[in-house]
Design a binder for these strands. Structure first.
Lengths: 228, 228
DNA sequence: CGGAATCCTCTTCGATACTG
DNA sequence: CAGTATCGAAGAGGATTCCG
């Protein structure tokens, strides 16, 4: 029962008492892109085991990080959703993403990959100069996954599910998407090869590949906290 | 043996593969205030156990987060020191601190407390308006601990050990220090009560209590990442 | 004495099977 | 579909011992 704590009167240790256990922060990552059902979470956290997920969700609900709610009709399914306190964790996750991209390298064989993860990493590493003046929504269909990204003046907000009125809709498969975001493949080439289909403003395609083309626009860009 | 990984091609998951195990980020926290010996780390991480600390240090050295070096004479002792890649983790720790202060509350009985932790939390929660125009160094002697804080135009940098040319030297005990930073006690009252001794510019004392007085100047201040 | 390997007990994790 | 129950395997915590 008794949650294990560090027993330190320290802000970071207290945060880690809540968030430091295995899988916990990845659950938050999943919920950053919108509410999810138990099943969806299992999908996004391969290897977690149902008992552990259930336990973590219960803990996190107790800590006020997420809430168990029922989606409005017609869906009506039970979902887990971040509270405001949970969404406050976004900067932490983005910081981890910024640190993690540098040692991402090539995908290992057998490694799981979900397209949204890439978009979340983009968001983290995007400098304020990228996508400036742009205010558009892109909808992605990557294999079975459907998600969209709202870009608004230098900030991108990835979210699960279809968009309301997307300016551009892109359809591709997981491998092609990975090649695109890692810069190994150009969008125009992918279209010619029949690996990518696009609907919407053709000029928007230029912008979207500009924003999401190279995986990291500017490595070691400002941390914003003046690390020595 | 085999380090446990999430097996996900995701920047955050990769970061957590390296940092997500118990104690790891707290080791980084300790090293953010300067190089430390094995013994010093044990002191700052009550409950860790020598075997685990040794294992973590080896892992982190392998990951390029820290380096085992020998201090220049006359010290000549072996110390652990963050690499640049390790110092890049500061924003992550600061983010955790900002999130953690909100649920810090009153110190639990039996909970460990090291004065530097408080100063690190201050740094994390300090808004850019605080300590603007200030460029001073304060040296703290709290019980056995000696550390200093360099304040430079809105940014504070806590570090272990004495300062080179401190503008102010403060001497007190752990409990009094905790009362001071939590705002339960005013510096002037502490001096009158003989609990705090100060050497240096008297005007600097006003500034230092202004900067480090209330534990959190402005809660929920900007996260700098535009969390929804 | 600082630094680290060894042993042992206990908790947590991971996978599967099972139930409302 | 959403979770609980179970059990072997891995990891953590604490003390002790070893190396320099």
């Amino acid at each position: 029962m008794s949650r294990r704590t560090y027993g330190q009167y320290c802000a970071m240790a207290r945060a880690l008492d809540v968030l430091g256990e295995r899988w916990t922060l990845l659950i938050v990552r999943e919920l950053l892109t919108g509410p999810k059902r138990f099943k969806d979470l299992l999908e996004g956290l391969p290897g977690i085991g149902t008992n552990l997920l259930a336990a973590r969700l219960k803990d996190l609900e107790g800590e006020g990080v997420l809430r168990r709610t029922t989606l409005p009709p017609p869906a009506g399914s039970a979902v887990y959703q971040l509270t405001e306190r949970g969404r406050d964790l976004e900067p932490v996750l983005m910081g981890l993403a910024r640190w993690g991209v540098d040692q991402l390298g090539e995908p290992h064989t057998g490694e799981a990959f979900r397209p949204v993860w890439a978009v979340q990493a983009m968001k983290a590493t995007m400098g304020p100069e990228a996508a400036r003046w742009v205010r558009e929504t892109y909808e992605f269909h990557v294999g079975e996954d459907v998600f969209h990204v709202r870009v608004d003046d230098g900030v991108s907000e990835p979210e699960y599910g279809p968009a309301f009125e997307p300016d551009l809709v892109l359809r591709t498969d997981g491998d092609t998407f990975l090649s695109l975001v890692s810069g190994r493949l150009e969008a125009t080439d992918a279209i010619e090869a029949g690996k990518l289909r696009v609907e919407g403003d053709p000029e928007a395609l230029a912008r979207v590949s500009d924003i999401f083309g190279p995986p990291v626009g500017a490595r070691r860009s400002g941390t914003g906290l003046g690390a020595s």
